[in-house]
């Protein structure tokens, strides 16, 4: 998993081809589909799913899952909003906003590390650990918010959801940066190396002298931080936060990983492919919206189209490997 060999490039080209194909199909079905407006709307919507997918990706590569990803993002957002609204109200000095964000990141890190520690030292399966954490956080969040939402955040915080840097929407810039960091982490650090090895065989990894327990803690801590980033972005964009916000992203983030050719049982998967899979998911969703289909029908179409994309990917792999 260290060198980007031919296989990686082939995989990326395959995804780009699918993306291009879908882009053309939507343009034909809906002339004028590709506009600045649609690109911008995709750029704003996609980072939330993207960040949560990255938060799912790292545990999946290690042979686990993080089913608490959306709720943990909510909790981070809730604590952040509670702090901002409580201490600063509508206007907050920049330093307070920065502190609030750091607080959210710390919470994400801490809950993630707690899950990792339980997985590592008590040998409990990640599904059970993260599912229990999800339920715990759900209850905790509803207790804090009394089932309602917290809204009316400082305007310079909302900037994180709406603002741009050199023309690029901040959420997109954050997602791209997170993807790059994730890629470097997974492909270029000993910890990332260990995560891939753990995903294939944790006991053999341990016998090779890899620090498997430490890695497990870091896997979920990193996942927690990514959840926190997603939570910050979501809170900023909606200027409000509540428990259960973006719940539907949970299963879609798992789907995005598998669509991005991550091995369901761990050991293999690339950030680049997952990144492109998220782009494809968003394109399909926006494309169907653009067709003006009934909302429920478009959900159904979305599901059907995903199956089609996976069959297409299978065909591309067959094609490229038969040429070898």
């Amino acid at each position: 998993m260290i060198k980007i060999g031919n296989r990686a490039i082939r995989e990326i080209l395959g995804f780009l081809l699918i993306y291009l194909l879908l882009a053309v199909v939507f343009e034909i079905l809906n002339p004028g589909f590709w506009s600045t407006q649609i690109v911008l709307s995709m750029a704003v919507q996609l980072p939330e799913l993207g960040l949560l997918t990255l938060a799912m990706f790292i545990p999946i590569v290690s042979g686990g899952l993080n089913l608490a990803n959306t709720i943990l993002a909510n909790i981070c957002g809730i604590v952040l909003a509670w702090f901002l609204v409580g201490y600063a109200g509508g206007e907050a000095p920049l330093i307070v906003v920065v502190f609030a964000c750091l607080l959210a990141l710390t919470i994400g890190f801490a809950f993630g590390a707690a899950m990792g520690t339980i997985v590592a030292y008590f040998g409990i399966h990640p599904i059970m650990v993260t599912l229990s954490m999800m339920i715990f956080l759900q209850g905790l969040g509803e207790f804090i918010t009394r089932g309602g939402d917290i809204s009316g955040l400082a305007s310079n915080f909302q900037f994180l959801g709406y603002g741009t840097v050199i023309g690029v929407p901040i959420p997109l810039a954050v997602f791209v940066a997170a993807s790059i960091i994730c890629h470097l982490f997974m492909a270029k650090t000993p910890l990332g190396f260990t995560i891939y090895m753990i995903g294939s065989n944790i006991r053999a990894s341990e016998f090779s002298g890899l620090a498997t327990k430490r890695a497990l803690i870091w896997i979920y801590a990193a996942s927690g931080v990514l959840c926190a980033v997603a939570g910050i972005i979501m809170t900023a964009r909606f200027n409000s936060v509540r428990v259960g916000h973006g719940e539907s992203y949970l299963l879609i983030s798992v789907l995005a990983c598998f669509l991005g050719a991550v091995h369901p049982f761990g050991g293999f998967g690339r950030v680049s492919s997952v990144f492109l899979a998220v782009l494809i998911l968003q394109l399909v969703s926006s494309g169907l919206n653009g067709l003006g289909a009934n909302q429920h029908l478009s959900t159904a179409l979305w599901g059907a189209l995903l199956v089609l994309v996976m069959i297409l990917r299978w065909a591309l792999i067959r094609l490229s490997s038969s040429r070898l």
Binding site: M197, N201, R203, A204, S205, F207, G267, F268
Partner: peptide, 10 residues
């Protein structure tokens, strides 16, 4: 098979 090498990896 189980402990000496991570069989699926490179």
């Amino acid at each position: 098979l189980q402990l000496g090498l991570v069989q699926e990896q490179s």
